[in-house]
Design a protein around this nucleic acid. Structure first.
Lengths: 294, 294
DNA sequence: GATTGCATTTTATGATTATAATATGTAATT
DNA sequence: AATTACATATTATAATCATAAAATGCAATC
């Protein structure tokens, strides 16, 4: 049984789409619409749908396309049934991150060395290295090779990151261009509510982390300034990597959620200065490392 | 006469090193020291020195290495004599930037298309595209191809960039970790002084731009927070590209210089809050686009 | 009129090899 | 002890080609 390789990313995108739109069994999944949403052509979307059909999540009807066979809520279970071991989005990326964090990789590494170590083609390696470079924890040396930066490994960087986030988010909220997006605020409240109703225990670490990130990025997006948003997105990708290493402290989630809701309340009440100050404290309070009071 | 290709970057680095250290004729240029400074091995440094020898800027002595033949001040003239047309650091990068700004490139482009258009190997193209991606004005699409972002071309982005810079720099100065670096402050004063003594008319656009950038990045570096510094460096690279398109307004330079010195004065006097507020105004005032007062 | 299904075109990846560029060890020199 | 000069080793780039993946045009269908 020769199976074509199907982009796991597109497959995941479709499932996420179904979930966030709370779709019901029987609903149609137009190919072009999905392709546009994910910024790809119909080809990879079709391939992913075909795969989802074998997993029993969608059903193909001749000349009519694909339809959901179950409500969005049940998709997660069906997915893990059909596919027990998770397909990581970029295994190489995580292997490098783990090895670096574990001290298995020297500060300076050559491309050839990494190709041998991970047994991948240069093109694939470079793609990942450049992704890492964009995240800021490796850089291309002017001659040969790459150098890891301490961004990822030092405690100092960890604290600096929290300070940066707190400042950027607070200031983004204070910009004259800041306009709360009603639709997004509504969605954010829904997510926080879902998190409260059982989500604390049942959601995966990745899902909880994503919900938190989405909340903060949504707030910064309201500033209507792409530079602020890009800066936050960049540091959040980095943060995910570090926080993944430790087990999540679920006992703090209720407080986090209520603080998120409080921020939304303050903004909607027009109390922006208070909201931004509270946001600052909220972020600094989430830091795992407590700096001594001066 | 088969000439080995010599890294123009290393050559430029050596000349810059000589200039910033105000070296005199006859001084020694140890190979390893230069290599360490530029983070490369001795090989490319030696190649560059050999080339500078043919240009008459340095002189080789058997078993003793290379020595400057002239004072730092005269290097610039000798350089342009020997090499009239400037060797750009990355011609492909600037060609893409120009073509994009001129509207010659569609929003979506494929790698093959660009390889054909600029007649370069894929590896070289990808290196440049990834550099651009790091600067934030292009992104890899999930399927094939790349998409330019409006960062570079829209007026809105231009203004947003100034707001971002102003906020980041101001906040960096207000961080509790901020510590003015005496040595760097001294150097900065020297540069601003040199700029005042004839530099306004004689320095090249690139030199003036670099001096200005160095000043601001030095200030942010005093915050001791790499995330702030990285954010400023990233946006400055972008800025350079845009400001290069327009002719520089040299009449504003004296004021810029005096404002820079004023900022240094305020910081050294311990008046940090004032300094940061002034810095904010200084940056917003430099924006070429005036937004109407609210 | 929008969407599918499928054929065709275009694009990007992986593997290989020659060659250019960079890195480095070491004896000789200062 | 530091530095050079040179030989050698290692690394990265360019060019090529086969193949996988993605994009796209269009007739058929709803």
């Amino acid at each position: 049984m020769a199976r074509q390789s199907v982009s796991p990313q597109i497959t995941a995108n479709i499932l996420e789409f179904v979930k966030t739109n709370q779709m019901r069994a029987g609903e149609h999944l137009p190919c072009q619409m999905l392709a546009d949403a994910f910024r790809v052509s119909r080809a990879p979307v079709n391939a992913a749908l075909k795969k989802l059909e074998t997993m029993g999540i969608v059903r193909a009807e001749p000349n009519r396309g694909y339809f959901l066979t179950m409500d969005a809520a049940k998709v997660e279970a069906a997915k893990s049934d059909a596919q027990p071991q998770r397909e990581e989005e970029d295994p190489l990326y995580f292997r490098i991150a783990e090895d670096r964090l574990a001290g298995m990789l020297e500060e300076r590494v050559s491309e050839n060395e990494l190709m041998r170590l991970y047994d991948v083609a240069r093109s694939r390696l470079l793609k990942t290295l450049h992704r890492i470079a964009e995240e800021g924890w490796i850089e291309r040396l002017p001659g040969n090779g790459w150098a890891f930066r301490e961004t990822l490994t030092s405690r100092k960087s960890y604290e600096e990151g929290y300070v940066f986030r707190a400042v950027i988010e607070q200031q983004a909220m204070l910009l004259p261009t800041f306009r709360p997006n009603e639709e997004e605020f509504r969605k954010a409240r829904a997510v926080q509510a879902a998190l409260g109703q059982g989500g604390y225990e049942t959601w995966s670490r990745a899902e909880i982390f994503k919900a938190n990130n989405d909340f903060h990025e949504m707030l910064v997006a309201c500033s209507q300034n792409d530079f602020f948003l890009d800066a936050i997105k960049r540091i959040n990708r980095l943060r995910r990597l570090i926080e993944y290493q430790v087990t999540i402290d679920r006992s703090r989630l209720p407080r986090q959620t209520s603080e998120h809701l409080h921020i939304l309340d303050l903004v909607e009440a027009g109390r922006r200065t208070e909201a931004s100050a509270f946001l600052y404290t909220h972020i600094m309070g989430a830091s795992r490392i407590k700096t001594p009071q001066v």
